[in-house]
Amino acid sequence: MQLKDQVALVTGGSRGIGKAIVQKLAAQGAKVAFVYRGAKDAALALQAEITAAGGVAKAIQADVADPAAAEVVVGGVLADWGRVDILVNNAGVIRDGLFIRMEADAWNTVIQTNLNGTFWFCKAVANQMALKQRYGRIINVSSVAAEHVNQGQTNYAASKGAVNSFTKALAVELGSRNVTVNAVAPGFIATDMSEAVRSKAGDFIEKKLVPLRRLGQPDDIANVVAFLAGPGAAYITGQVITVDGGLSLGAVTG
């Protein structure tokens, strides 16, 4: 229970990697508020599951791409629980397509959610963490696809690359106030978001591109997020931690 009595806020928390992060932080004793956009049933089920297990969780509906959302969400968490120790910016979307045919909407949606959503939520907690608490852990979920880019993902790669740079720059500014800012860059994780790619090339990825010979599970990411949120990571800031089973080594195996 290394996060006992801490307050965590996780965006994109109802499904996939976010759900595993919510479960992990709650299991370690944190009170977890998590944001979901559309998956209300899944969100309420997760909230009920954690509560039944003796934890504390609260599902909050919001779209992180909405510039007004973060202030409202963070304001609510502060009103209820008085502080925010951990922020996990996990909400992310893909709108893949070849650039020549990419509509502005596909670009904007991805940037507004993945990058601007991270900006808004960091902005909403920064004063609280840096000045009021002098403590905070910000963890941005990036992607290995920021550096090891894929065809059809100009928008996604740009958004995640920007999140990595933002993570480093923010870490510099908040360091003197005991707020660490790190990113976790997952590789291929078995979630709904990667379903399209996995159904086409899952076998090849697993057998040829991932030295650990398996796809990642949401828990593989949640474990690292929980570590970065915990006392063991006190001296780590401004880092992008790749969690990809060795995919980014770029070796073809077998």
Binding site: N127, A130, L131, K132, E173, L174, S176, R177
Partner: peptide
């Protein structure tokens, strides 16, 4: 005092 300290001082 560093730059962020000025924000902190104003806040306090």
């Amino acid at each position: 005092a560093e730059s962020i300290d000025f924000l902190d001082i104003v806040f306090r």
